[in-house]
Design a protein around this nucleic acid. Structure first.
Lengths: 357, 357
DNA sequence: AAATTTTTTGCAATCGATTGCACCCTATCG
DNA sequence: CGATAGGGTGCAATCGATTGCAAAAAATTT
């Protein structure tokens, strides 16, 4: 028994004018073409009938859907929801809705899901899943699609992005660890296919020298995943290699959580034996054991800013927009997972560290 | 420079048939009307031109968008993303996309955002934000909208829902606490405006008697929020009232986390002095300090099941569907936040418990 | 072989809004 | 007072697909 929604025609008939007049009267851009008194009547009638524009008809005619797509690796990874909210909050103001899609970190799937979004006719894309050399994204941009990457970016900077100041984050963290007295620091680096992983590792190497920290390659381990399991495996790998380090700088919080677990299983306590640091300041890392020292990124703002860049592009689709790159400042948050190195370094503890390799 | 997408007309011209023929050939439901060989040619041409149906045109004509709306209180609350993924996974199979909207727990906003979804023409709604007496949702259902509530439900059961077995969860938890030797247990109950809060509290009272646990009203405190801050405040309130309890059964994990923090500030350690339990088994509660004993709900499956119910409703909008209510089984997960009560009960510890009121 | 049925295809209306163009009416000017 | 300008409105095409109905073609029956 669903009642039919009122259409422009219904409003037109009620007022006694043509639909085109109603259309113009209801559109703020064209309202000035209509006699004020008639426009008022139309507004009243439209309210009386509870008229809502049919978005399918609008889209068909104008070729705009007022929907944007957001592509993330996985919405259950708690780093992303705040970013998504940032995007939504920025674009809701302009009447856009947001379609979120997960790639589950599978590169092939990115192409598929983006294609699905495109066929739904989204007006633009915010991509959080982008790889440093992302073919799909570059192709879309070349094709004229409004697109912005967030949190990560592509190498050639041809596509607008909003990212965090990874370099500054790593610098602050290294400075913090150095000031505590750490000399041998493991870099548990993230996948180098992502700008985050790559920039953080580069920053590590760049800055380590300056503060007198070893950059010996055997102190770096690369993870391909960005999650706890990957963190555990990498940490075990390092422990099997050497044990003369006193801190682990992880490319993100989840790796850090995994690393702490692996250390614990190996008989090493954080922060007593080994300090561990994260990156991102995900929700809840202040409540874990030990509370994580990490770099806080402005998750909501990053999303918001990305949406603003996107909006600029969508507003005028004819012009080619020079890519813009926003880098958001980050903040060091010191908690319980970092402490001065033990008097007798972990190396001296020898056997203990070898319990499990 | 964006290239125009191919339309039915383009395909028709390439093959040399009428658009209606192409339309029928491409639709599995009507393909049997078309000569097989022609259908083949059409399929080939459509592939060659990379034809994608224009969803605006489809929607306009059929009055279906193949989009469903999911209304949640807040996507950054990590209980919801897995549910959302469940919904998405179930409906993606049928070609639906999912528009997620946050109400931020504000009842007025629910009406607004649902209205926004409706005007976008969503084919159905999954509502996770529903209150026990939700006017908006009931009205929509009466209006003929396909709608299912998830995680929560409305009192009169007139609307299909997928929820968890709250009663069984509380029963298992109480049994667990009783078997450890707890007698005086605080119920840190959630808002009674939600079915979750209400059912869990009712189950607490129902079952407490049976296992010899006090149901004195002064052992219950009601929270209005469902988050850590609310948990802290409520816990403080209880501590000010009495201290002769040895366990706190919280209506959800976030309240439990807040409760633990408040106890700690009050000089009481969990689980040594007081055991604390949660509900939901949110991500990360296994990593916090102490790891939380809680009830695991099948977040993904709950979402998936809700989507399946919704799909049934959407498949045939003419029929009125009798509401169905699915209750998913839950599981007790014992971790570090529960232990036997101390020999000398917290009450004996007297002053310590009163450090902060 | 004619008549009838069945299958296959095309025609054209339709969904609801936007928008270039033409028209009409009023106001202004010569 | 007639011509002209210009503001306000209506007309009708259009976006791309779906679908009831009619027509054409093929198959079947008499």
């Amino acid at each position: 028994m669903r009642k039919r929604r009122a259409t422009l025609k219904d409003v037109a008939e009620l007022v006694g004018v043509h639909v085109s007049t109603v259309s113009r009267a209801l559109n703020p851009e064209t309202r000035h073409l209509i006699t004020a008194s008639i426009a008022q009547k139309i507004a009243a009638a439209s309210r009386a009938l509870d008229y809502r524009p049919n978005s399918a008809a609008y889209s068909l005619r104008t070729n705009r859907t007022r929907i944007i797509g957001v592509v993330v690796p996985d919405i259950t990874n708690s780093i992303f929801p705040p970013i998504i909210r940032g995007v939504e909050d920025a674009l809701a103001e302009h009447g856009y809705a947001t379609l979120v899609i997960n790639t589950d970190g599978r590169t092939e799937r990115e192409a598929t899901v983006i294609e699905a979004l495109a066929s739904r006719g989204v007006d633009g894309l915010v991509v959080a899943s982008v790889e440093r050399d992302d073919h799909t994204v570059r192709q879309l941009a070349a094709f004229g699609t409004a697109i912005v990457t967030v949190n990560r970016r592509i190498d050639d900077l041809s596509i607008s992005s909003v990212t965090n100041d990874e370099e500054d984050g790593v610098r602050m963290m290294l400075t913090h660890l150095a000031s505590l007295g750490h000399k041998n620091i493991v870099s548990l680096a993230g996948s180098q296919n992502f700008s985050t992983g790559q920039r953080r590792q580069t920053a590590f190497l760049d800055h380590a020298g300056k503060v007198g920290i070893s950059t010996d390659p055997s102190l770096t381990v690369f993870s391909n995943g960005f999650n706890e399991n990957a963190g555990e495996r990498c940490m075990e790998e390092v422990l099997a290699r050497r044990t003369d380090f006193t801190a682990v700088l992880c490319a993100n919080d989840r790796l850090a959580i995994g690393a702490i677990a692996a250390l614990r299983r190996g008989g090493l306590l954080c922060p007593t034996d080994i300090s561990v640091t994260g990156f991102n300041d995900m929700a809840m890392v202040d409540r874990i054991d030990p509370p994580l020292t990490t770099i806080r990124i402005q998750q909501h703002r990053v999303g918001y800013a990305a949406a603003e860049l996107l909006y600029e592009q969508m507003r005028d689709r004819t012009r080619t927009h020079a890519p813009r790159h926003v880098i958001m400042p980050v903040e060091l948050v010191v908690r319980g997972s970092t402490a001065p190195p033990p008097r007798t370094s972990a190396a001296a503890a020898g056997p203990r560290a070898r319990v499990r390799v």
